[in-house]
């Protein structure tokens, strides 16, 4: 079985994000960029399936700048077999990403695509679902456990009320939640081996897909500063404040 794992280069989760002074976006100059944490989980899950003998090949794919090769190399060092970079310096919205991934799926014919449930830069949480719709495949989102057997995959999902398990026929789309696994660190020897694994660099033009943005960013601002809290003396006072000051009751 072949597994496709899309990975995105995003601002590192430790970085304190700053808005550019012209409010056009987030300042990315000299900040640490990393693989989207949910995508690390996706790579890890694919590698575990390969180690268990369930999968034969893992292909990592990224749509992003030249430097996204760093994240693809990381996926290769973690255990992916080869990688594809679809190069663009522009912002690509989830729908465009899903369309490009659909093309890659048609070329590669994987039986399983494992994606992060969302990317921590824009938190869209759309790409996996859109890809499933475009392909007409089954989807199991927010996976905290997967079990692959007999041509189907059971995905335990984290939902508001608790856990739900869905059984999907292959080929299928899975998106990962935080508790699915704890991704491994690459090792130094594997980093060196990853250098020799194939990494194809493509252009968006190679795919004949309309990736023009559908959204326009008017401005980007910092979230409002949290005000200091107050201590209340009694429950009655709390209820009173909630009713009359906060207006939430």
């Amino acid at each position: 079985m072949k597994i496709l794992v899309p990975v995105k280069r995003v601002i590192d989760y430790n970085v304190k994000v700053r808005v550019k002074s012209d409010q056009s976006g987030v300042d990315l100059a000299n900040v640490k960029m990393s693989m989207n944490p949910f995508d690390e989980i996706a790579v890890e899950e694919a590698v575990r399936l390969k180690e268990a003998g369930t999968a034969e090949e893992i292909v990592a794919v990224s749509i992003g700048p030249e430097k996204a090769q760093d994240q693809l190399r990381q996926a290769l060092a973690m255990g992916a077999d080869r990688a594809i970079l679809i190069k663009t310096e522009e912002t690509v919205e989830p729908l465009a990403v899903a369309k490009l991934l659909k093309k890659v799926v048609e070329e590669e014919s994987p039986e399983l695509v494992i994606l992060g449930k969302q990317a921590i830069d824009d938190d869209s949480n759309q790409t996996g679902q859109m890809l499933a719709a475009l392909l007409g495949w089954a989807q199991g989102t927010f996976a905290s456990k997967v079990n692959l057997a007999d041509g189907k995959i059971d995905v335990t999902r984290e939902i508001d009320g608790g856990l739900q398990t869905v059984s999907l026929k292959l080929p299928a789309i899975v998106t990962t939640d935080l508790r699915l696994n704890e991704p491994r660190y690459a090792s130094l020897p594997n980093i060196m081996k990853a250098k020799k694994k194939p990494l194809d660099v493509k252009e968006i033009g190679d795919y004949g897909v309309d990736v023009a943005p559908r959204l326009e960013t008017l401005k980007v601002t910092e979230p409002p500063k949290r005000e200091a809290g107050v201590k209340v003396e009694s429950v009655a006072e709390l209820v009173d404040k909630l009713k009359n000051e906060a207006g939430v009751l």
Binding site: S34, D70, Q74, Y185, A186, I191, M192, A194, K195
Partner: peptide, 20 residues
């Protein structure tokens, strides 16, 4: 000669991630 900027970056990334 086995190393290049890319692999050195990857080594530093790994070290930083693990250290942090």
């Amino acid at each position: 000669t086995e190393f290049d900027r890319g692999s050195i970056d990857a080594v530093l990334d790994l070290a930083q991630n693990m250290a942090e």
